[in-house]
């Protein structure tokens, strides 16, 4: 197990290195100058050059990269060009916001989608299956920003039940925090449960065709026992992979939802950083996101043997 863990961590290092090079190069390749964006059309003669020099942007790109990489390796992700805040605490702070919403959303999406998928598989090609498939396909097809806006208009604006903008941390006020995350969480649950349902259904159907399930049924076990005790574990393994990917993807791509609901999370930090050409923030966020993917997938791989004894860590 320890060897497996070390091997996986070792293989992650080149991935993260490649991400760092790619992100750094891409940010420098796209037109736009952070110093120019900060000063806008109000810049006085000489100020732009002075600011670029202060930011180290007058150095050759390789030198800039090596400085940045050296700092990152020592735990210093630099300071945001726009806000002058240290990037690492800024990212962690924003990540805690995104993670709260994503984890709650993925938890509920799994709670709803996996039983729904298994139910559909059990009732394959019958009315129940068709209803589940139709609903999940519909949810899969709805863009998250549109669904978010609709929920916002109905529950925030028309009915006035829930707040429209902002975020309150749970550490500050539990009740308010709950109110503020309902709409973004519901949006994500609806959108993501579609794909999880379909995966759960497909893998359950596949497992249900195996001989050991027929054997279990032949022994006279009830359908509930067959499905939950024998089919679930094996059928859940591929779904778990998908959940891992969904989790990683949401943590990286929650920007749209954060923009619609005005949530100060990691995604919005990244998007704002791209608009402002805030190189340290964008580089830090991308590297952090890649790191998250690696960690989530590692955790999924570690959970695999618990579900399927044929897989060894």
């Amino acid at each position: 197990m320890v060897r497996f863990l070390l091997t996986r961590i070792a293989t992650a290092i080149p991935t993260l290195f490649l991400v760092s090079v790619t992100v750094f190069a891409l940010m420098r390749a796209i037109p736009g100058d952070p110093a120019a964006l900060m000063l806008g059309d109000l810049a006085q003669p000489g100020q732009l050059e002075a600011l670029r020099a202060e930011m180290g942007l007058d150095q050759p790109i390789i030198v800039q990269y090596l400085y940045w990489l050296g700092d990152v390796l020592s735990g210093d992700f630099g300071r945001s060009i726009a806000t002058r805040q240290p990037v690492l605490p800024l990212m962690l702070d924003r990540f805690s916001v995104s993670a709260t919403i994503v984890l709650v959303a993925v938890f509920f999406a799994t709670l709803i989608a996996v039983p729904a998928g298994m139910f559909a598989a059990w009732r394959q090609n019958r009315a129940g299956d068709i209803a589940v498939i139709a609903t999940s396909t519909l949810l899969l097809s709805i863009p998250s920003f549109w669904l978010g806006l609709m929920l916002l208009l109905i529950f925030g604006l028309q009915l006035g039940w829930l707040p429209v903008v902002g975020y309150v941390p749970f550490s500050r006020d539990f009740g308010s925090a709950l109110l503020y995350i309902i709409l973004p969480v519901v949006t994500l649950v609806l959108v993501e449960s579609g794909s999880i349902t379909r995966m759960a259904r497909a893998s359950t159907i596949e497992v249900a065709r195996l001989e050991y399930i027929t054997h279990a049924r032949a022994k006279g076990l009830s359908e509930a026992t067959v499905m939950w005790r024998h089919a679930f574990k094996n059928a859940f393994a591929p779904t778990l992979t998908l959940i891992g990917l969904v989790l990683g993807s949401l943590l990286a791509n929650i920007a749209v939802i954060e923009t619609v609901f005005t949530i100060p999370g990691l995604g919005r930090l990244l998007v704002d950083g791209i608009y402002a050409r805030d190189y340290p923030v964008v580089q830090g966020c991308m590297l952090f996101t890649a790191f998250l993917y690696v960690v989530v997938n590692l955790l999924v791989d570690l959970l695999y043997p618990l579900l399927d004894p044929r897989v060894t860590a």
């Binding site: 806006l149 916002l152 208009l153 925030g156 604006l157 006035g160 707040p163 429209v164 903008v165 902002g166 923009t259 619609v260 609901f261 005005t262 100060p264 919005r268 704002d272």
Partner: peptide, 16 residues
């Protein structure tokens, strides 16, 4: 701080 214009308009209409 509301970066998105549509969200800001919705917040205004909702009285926030």
């Amino acid at each position: 701080i509301i970066p998105d214009t549509s969200a800001a308009e919705t917040a205004l209409f909702a009285g926030e």
